[in-house]
Design a protein around this nucleic acid. Structure first.
Lengths: 213, 213
DNA sequence: TAGATTGTTAATCGATTAACAATC
DNA sequence: TAGATTGTTAATCGATTAACAATC
């Protein structure tokens, strides 16, 4: 039963489970227990079982979960069983890095095009994807039925990039710029916040030690 | 009083406060209330006040916090009031992007050198930092009293990069590769996990809507 | 002084963990 | 069958939120 919406911490752990499952699958394992998974990821088995329940998977007592089956449940839970078309705003260093990131296809997205304000970049191809002028955003978004936009422009341009995406009708934005962006209520923004994460590392380093995450 | 260690969610919110304070400072504001900050970041004032308490700041009832003073408290809490020397492993697209990220100095780190296995890259300069051969890691870490290593190599090389850093005596690792790395107990690893964050976005998009973070 | 905002103590909420019956 | 592992219900833990006295 996955009537209830999964807690965010659960959602954040789930890609890790998928990764572990891929390894087990390579090893030819057919079944896997929550204990096996927990061991690999330094978690408690009970937490893994609880998380799994949210994906809708049903395990076999004494045996565990069927690997293929569980991967399928997870992919469907994350909506990663098909590739959501995405566009990328800002073909700078970070943007190029993301364009070159092979594994996005396994993570349910496909970047179909990149856009940049810099005329010098327009028309070039980066890892097989063409860089277009900003004016083309709307037309490309419509043509490829793009749902998601990724922002990798410098902070000053973040809101402008977001506005282009919104105007084109994108439903979700993955924002890698340190600048927060304003969007209408129905649009979902995920802010990739490096400074939060660096803060945790800094405090743990300062404190001699501290906790995970 | 900040006897107790701050919860991780608190630590993660704190850089956002610093960012808002910088804006207020630019506007010449001398005092700021928890309500002002909360408004900017879509948080509850009570949460801001609770978080602030962990930084050790003392506010004035009816007036709020002194902006300069609060920034100082936050920087000291995060250990961002001086620049921790860091090295970067992997001068690829992502590594170059980080080398070009101007704001690290405000985030308490200074990347002093980059390293790469690719001979073609060695000796080049990226955003003013030289790329060295991997053999030089230990010697440079010692010379610059480096505490932190940043991993931006492809997943296959992540453990190798970590091992070089560990061998050189680094205390903390900021790992941008999707591959987890094994380290001795006393070393702190912060895993920058794009897939977790993409998972949250995917689920929220799928579900029509969902919650923050 | 009156009123706004802090800091603290208590209440609530939600996630994690534990206990255990069901089951292959 | 006996034993291991699931799924569920209950207990615990920790973070968020509320209430309110202190105070400038």
């Amino acid at each position: 039963m996955n009537k209830t919406i999964a807690p965010v911490p659960t959602i954040r752990r789930i890609p890790g489970y998928l990764h572990v499952l891929q390894e087990f699958k390579k090893q030819g394992k057919e079944f896997i227990s929550a204990t096996d998974i927990a061991g690999k990821l330094d978690l408690k088995p009970i937490q893994v079982r609880k998380d799994m329940a949210f994906t809708g998977i049903i395990g076999k007592p004494r045996v565990g979960y069927q690997v293929e089956n569980l991967m399928e449940s997870i992919r469907s839970f994350l909506d990663w069983n098909h590739q959501t078309p995405a566009v990328l705003m800002g073909a700078g260093a970070l943007g190029s890095a993301l364009l070159g990131y092979k594994n996005f296809e396994e993570h349910g997205i496909r970047i179909v095009a990149a856009f940049d304000e810099d005329k010098a970049k327009i028309g070039k191809k980066i890892h097989g994807r063409e860089v277009f002028s900003i004016e083309r955003v709307k037309d490309m978004v419509i043509k490829h039925e793009v749902i998601m936009g990724i922002i990798t422009v410098p902070p000053e341009g973040a809101q402008r990039a977001a506005d282009s995406l919104l105007n084109a009708g994108v439903k979700g934005i993955w924002n890698f710029s340190p600048q927060k962006v304003e969007v209408p209520e129905h649009v979902i923004v995920q802010h990739e916040d490096l400074s939060s994460s660096l803060a945790v590392l800094s405090v743990r380093l300062k404190g001699g030690e501290a906790e995970e995450t």
